[in-house]
Write a protein that binds this DNA or RNA. Sequence first.
DNA 1: AAATAAGATGATGGGTTTTGAGGTGTATTG
DNA 2: CAATACACCTCAAAACCCATCATCTTATTT
Lengths: 343, 343
Amino acid sequence: MGSGGEYPASERPQQADVAARAGVSLATVDRVLNRRKGVKERTRQRVLEAARELGFLSETEEARLGNARPLNIVVLLPAGSNPYLRLLGERLRARLERTGADGPALRCFFIESFSAQALAEALRRNAGWADGIAFFAIEHPVVREAAAEVAATGTRLVSIVSDLGSVPGIPHVGLDNRAVGRTAGLLIGRLSGGRAGAVALVAGSRHYRAHSEREAGFLSIQEELFPQMRVHGMREGHDDAAENYRHTLALLDQVPDLVGIYNVGGSSGGITRALREQGRQEVIFIGHGLTQDTRKAVLEGTMDAIFDQDPDTLLDRAVACLNDPATTARPLKLDIYFSENLP
Amino acid sequence: MGSGGEYPASERPQQADVAARAGVSLATVDRVLNRRKGVKERTRQRVLEAARELGFLSETEEARLGNARPLNIVVLLPAGSNPYLRLLGERLRARLERTGADGPALRCFFIESFSAQALAEALRRNAGWADGIAFFAIEHPVVREAAAEVAATGTRLVSIVSDLGSVPGIPHVGLDNRAVGRTAGLLIGRLSGGRAGAVALVAGSRHYRAHSEREAGFLSIQEELFPQMRVHGMREGHDDAAENYRHTLALLDQVPDLVGIYNVGGSSGGITRALREQGRQEVIFIGHGLTQDTRKAVLEGTMDAIFDQDPDTLLDRAVACLNDPATTARPLKLDIYFSENLP
DNA sequence: AAATAAGATGATGGGTTTTGAGGTGTATTG
DNA sequence: CAATACACCTCAAAACCCATCATCTTATTT
């Protein structure tokens, strides 16, 4: 039986045969087979079909090439000096290099911070063009409107870190920020050993729901468990180190019995700088985002804990959500770092 | 050339038949069968398939040449009532259901606890048969010996949760336990607000390196940062709730100025029961393993923090290690849960 | 509608990898 | 011993990868 397999040796199909059958040139077959860009979807299918008919491709190869053209994903992050967001952008680039051509094509744009208009515009600009958009949301009617429009065009959306509030059809990937705020409150209360005094709540920006929710959680637990402490609100620092620095100096000056600080936003560097310069390291300070500056602050004792959401997990989950809109988005895990368990 | 057709079917198929069937030359069949380089993966598969269809290869040869059929993985865990380990077993089953036939075939066996002999025997029993073994290691020469033997047979090994010490070629998936112990010490020290008094260190079992390392870390930071506290060692509780319960009662009786407890092992339920019954919830208590009982204890305030390593991540990483021995195993992330950030 | 830009395809060539054909030596077997 | 199957090698041809550029299409702007 052995003589003659399915293909006599002389007639095993080659790329040239596929090209002929598909009515295209070798160059195009090559582009399709090697996943190079610059081929119209229709042509791609023609080539694939020809290859299939000639038995040029094995099952697995066919599956690999057939469907699943990598998704085209855009990530919109606020511009500015916030180290966590910069880290996020960096991890995104790293991820892109790692997955290469196989993974989704990720593009990252930095949008003028705190500008609902700019964000809405960026959303609209990418609608249709991108398969999915992951964006750090600003809670504002203008953005909600733009998001709804974009969603209607078929481009999938997912909010990351901070969400839009209740907009159906836009899943969110991020922490349970109310619980996060409560955890911060609990830790500051417990670490201060029941002392009476003031705790400062550093607002990032009320534009971000994530920040508001953390605030709400923090306030609720303070009231509930630590009534002997009074919460001292602080003006918005807009995730800016210099601004946070000035505000903290003023705070230390005005509030002599300050026991703790919780920064709901980013750019904690300004706060640690003020604490360090004023020799007030004993003040309990919790902030967000595991970055170079917060690491250093925790190690030297100026910060007591860092709350973090792992950037890689965040991106993974966001991409998963965009790939499969049925994914239920349970909140991310809160990572808590003290001086002894830094990675 | 045409060797096949005229011979009776009983004749053993030859390379020439395979070559014909695969539509390649003898030279290529030879290259594939003798694992020489210079064959495109596509062709390799073609040849292997032809060989398979002709029954040219025995099972073992096929396995040796073929690729990545789902791995056959055995997981060895200590038997006993430790809730975390039971949860691990459960997640393993869930994982199996989730991945179905695609993922690796995972089998889980529970080995008599604290018995190096039993573990060594189980390792040997599964050598050769399984492609990889993930095991909760007991640090003992008998086990080390067995592990080295098994590794020599080609069955890959990875220790999980607790490692074997320095055995080259056996990667480990687990926490950085010294850092974990130090974090526990830091937290107890900080949460107790600098009070003087005793801290109890509940030993699980010195058979487990993970436990010893946590102890060492805990002791080192106590000495370093909280010299006003004295560490009171407790007899091994062997991860058993009843035993831990008795020991804790004795402890509470003998040590009036007890400030905190750190249980390096599992089965914290016995400890919380004793604390609850004696009305000593103010004692700061940190234990391991996010399970039903520890959740409840944290919520009611008997426990102050749970240290956890996520079972799913643990299994993922273990499987990844067995799949690709080149994987460098950086330590897992320590998850810290307080009453407010329970998932 | 013409001009322009952007994208898709074809043509081509240099360099690399894969493959086929054939030679040699060896162990096995009838 | 002769025939056979096969391991292992070499070499040249074929197939393929990859980059570049010209050409052609299509959409957008003016």
